[in-house]
């Protein structure tokens, strides 16, 4: 039985070789795509450490000949583009928005998931239906409302309208529906009232959902461009995203400065992503699928 064994072993080796070649090709392709994704970010970083004189040289240097922090010190100290102030403003707006949303949306989400009241189904249906309305139709009227309420150029003008969003309510409701009812029923038999059940039994279970929602909402608020551009116009109350546009207008062809600004805006988000990558990706996978 030895002769026929030879061709089998031979084809097995060929099969293995093909597998290895296939794998190498796959990895090569994945690495190439990863480079395409990363190169613009590296270019931003590289430019931010370059002197203006190096930007338009005949040769391109990925690692600057002279590494300078001048761009960073310059934009951090220029009073006409107060980027540290904008950074602080962004932190305030994004943090307050996120915290307020977590409170409102977990309360409302629990209400629509578990509590019984007249018109619950209809009301929640109405809320859900508005998720399909295009955001553009709220732009002008909400701006008018914010102006009338005297919230233009105040952080409240950026924070308060965002609290109306239905997404978080829907998200928390779905989570509350997924936890077993028995725990709450047991607590009710022990004599706990609705608030005690919510705060002592349900909320501790909701930590992962709250963390996911916090990440999504913080990212959304931090990255918000259009609404912040409309309602926070004064340089003193501007946030980072419209601030970048101010920066772009303030320095003609000073790309080093602008890229330093972009790095300052991008870095916190990229760090957050690096540490909470699982949370972010999985939240997109689940919420995106459900629409």
């Amino acid at each position: 039985m030895t002769p026929p064994a030879m061709p089998i072993r031979h084809s097995e080796a060929r099969y293995r070789l093909r597998r290895i070649v296939g794998r190498v090709a796959l990895y090569a392709l994945m690495i190439c795509i990863a480079l395409i994704v990363i190169i613009p970010l590296l270019w931003m970083l590289s430019t931010s450490f370059k002197l203006k004189s190096q930007l338009f040289s005949r040769e391109i240097y990925w690692i600057p000949k002279v590494i300078t922090l001048e761009n960073y010190t310059k934009i951090l100290n220029n009073p006409s583009t107060p980027i540290t102030l904008w950074f602080r403003n962004s932190v305030i707006v994004a943090t307050l928005t996120t915290v307020a949303k977590l409170v409102l949306d977990s309360l409302a989400g629990y209400g629509y998931a578990r509590l019984e009241f007249a018109g619950r189904k209809q009301l929640f249906g109405l809320l859900l239906a508005t998720l399909f309305l295009p955001g553009v139709m709220f732009l002008v009227p909400n701006f008018v409302t914010v102006a009338r309420l005297g919230m233009l150029n105040k952080f409240s003008g950026a924070i308060v309208p965002a609290l109306a969003s239905v997404f978080g309510v829907y998200f928390m409701r779905q989570f509350f529906l997924s936890i077993p009812k028995e725990l709450e029923e047991a607590a009710a038999i022990d004599g706990a009232n609705t608030f005690q059940i919510f705060f002592q039994v349900v909320l501790p279970l909701a930590k992962p959902a709250l963390a996911t929602l916090a990440v999504i909402e913080f990212l959304g608020s931090w990255n918000d461009f259009l609404w912040a551009l409309l309602v926070l116009k004064d340089r003193a109350v501007q946030t980072l995203q419209p601030g970048l546009r101010t920066l772009q207008g303030a320095y003609t062809s000073e790309y080093g400065l602008m890229m330093a600004g972009a790095v300052i805006v991008a870095l916190p988000v990229l760090l957050l992503y690096a540490f909470l990558q699982r949370y972010v990706v999985e939240s997109v996978a689940t919420t995106g699928l459900k629409g």
Partner: peptide, 22 residues
Amino acid sequence: FRAIYFAPWVLSCAVISLIWWW
């Protein structure tokens, strides 16, 4: 690779516009 390919999405519109503009 999944994490790398997704990464640009977490950046803001202003940041990516500035990078590609340059």
